[in-house]
Nucleic acid binder design. Structure first.
Lengths: 296, 296
DNA sequence: GTCGATCCATACCGTGAGGGTATCGGCTGA
DNA sequence: TCAGCCGATACCCTCACGGTATGGATCGAC
């Protein structure tokens, strides 16, 4: 069997995600019949059924599940090949950093300032996206390095360096009955609603899913939800919100991640600088905390 | 720009490896003109020159170098997607283990014996290939797990577990002036010729490159070369060769490697078994050594 | 039970991407 | 200077892929 074309992988991913040939075809910008044929041919060529379908429902077979995750990774690798080669070809080298808004624990300004003085430094572009997208953005070459939190992130294909570990706090409206406590434990929060992050931006919004930090904070301010977040978000808090340490919540680790095996000098210098800055911050009280202490 | 097709990647890899359009076309089974066109179109689409060519010589640009390694990885990922899905689809699950001949430090029989008793065990197929190919065979899905030595192996995309570390010995013909020494140090070996492993099987053989252990041992027996290898090869030595411990050579580590993020139960059981067996072996004298001690 | 809606599969057709042959043009070494 | 090598170009042809029309199966409404 000769090698699959990326088109076939993309077609399969679309169908596997939509579980609906019509919608998948629309998303791909082609008609439904060619898509049906392409998937059939794909299954025939692979010798394995990937989808169970009757005229009412499409579901993934076990092989299909595996093929979906593997196909996504393969497509990322193809995109990454192009992007990284283009980057290497353009003389004006830049470093693209991805993070979710507010996801730097207040560390980024210091890192950038220190990095600029490094002889290997290049200009840094910052790309913002939601937390669960960051790893993919690094994998497919849209970014060179990312600041992200270890929890719940698939780090396969990435090299990482731990930057700092911080405790978690719960964000509450001032009116909340726990708002004046010095600390709380997770048991105190039982029964509170915690929104989920909605993966799909064109998902229909509902009261329990949020797309960004702004939405989350709005919900909390309205008393509809609370959230447990790393302590460093204190510094970005709206006036109508407060936060209280959660004593028994698992501390979160901020990490720096980049494509596995990549050792470009500009990247290496950035990693070096970031770990140094983070180590220094970990030892001394953070600037955010100090500011707050002085202010109160 | 829409996504590259794998055909274009494969074409580029062929040209980049051959550095000759005619030979690359022959290897790909197409004529030379379509290949020239495909590469031109690829460069136009990517907006980056990948190859410098005049009518006498083809060379890679920096972007081309990057694109070559990235393309190989992407093609591996595509192949892996197919192979792993096919494996998941076939009911008769098997575990494919790759290693170089003699590369198991004598550990494999015990591992296989112990593994068979595991409730999650499946039949194990063993694939042999040269040391530098093993990692690729795992990456592109031809094998599920590999036994390999850490030195000089690119482990990106793989999860690993250390099995055991062993000292190195130098293999010598009996006639060698160091053959009767109890031990030697690297300085004693200065000036000796050590063959290189030839990556390309259809490379023209020369007196300094070998393709397999048999060739290597033959060269040593003829007094044309010596080699520093892990101590466990003692057990596989020809009668006309002997080995002497090298006191100051970096010990080598035997590792188990598998595709990053893969957690199939049969694989997990194998990893568990192998580490247990290796830990046990590390503590007690190895069977190979014991046998030799009893024999002398 | 019937009818209509939904949705995937099949039949058939047209177009263009990709492959083949012939040839050009530039470079090089004898 | 000439012959030979090698990549690029010109031109043609074929079939893979996409489009439209339609079939056939399933399910819900009444």
């Amino acid at each position: 069997m000769d090698r699959l074309q990326t088109r076939e992988l993309a077609y399969f991913v679309a169908v596997a995600e939509e579980l609906h040939f019509g919608r998948a075809a629309e998303r791909l910008g082609i008609a439904q019949p060619p898509l049906s044929r392409a998937i059939s041919r794909l299954e025939r060529r692979m010798g394995v059924p990937l989808l169970e379908r009757n005229s009412r429902k499409v579901t993934l077979t076990p092989a299909g599940e595996v093929f979906l995750t593997e196909s996504r990774r393969a497509l990322d690798a193809v995109d990454a090949a192009v992007r990284r080669a283009q980057r290497a070809g353009r003389p004006a080298s830049r470093l693209v950093l991805v993070m979710k808004p507010g996801g730097d624990c207040g560390l980024l300004p210091d890192i950038l300032a220190a990095y600029e003085t490094d002889p290997d430094a290049v200009p840094v572009d910052i790309v913002l996206c939601s937390a669960h997208e960051c790893a993919g953005v690094i994998r497919d070459g849209r970014a060179d390095v990312g600041l992200l939190h270890r929890s719940n992130t698939d780090l396969t294909g990435l090299d990482i360096e731990e930057l700092l570990t911080e405790d978690q706090v719960v964000v509450l409206p001032h009116s909340h009955h726990l708002a004046d406590r010095v600390s709380v434990c997770l048991a105190d929060l039982a029964g509170e609603t915690m929104p989920h992050w909605s993966a799909d931006p064109h998902n229909t919004p509902n009261r329990l899913s949020v797309r960004d930090v702004g939405q989350l904070m709005q919900l909390i301010a309205l008393g509809r939800a609370i959230a447990v977040v790393p302590a460093s978000v204190r510094g970005q808090l709206r006036d109508d919100l407060t936060c209280v340490p959660v004593t028994d919540a698992q501390p979160t680790t901020l990490i720096l991640a980049w494509p596995q095996g990549h050792r470009a000098s500009a990247l290496a210098a950035f990693v070096r600088t970031a770990t140094t800055v983070a180590a220094h911050r970990q030892q001394t009280p953070s600037r955010v905390k100090r500011r707050r202490i002085h202010a109160t």
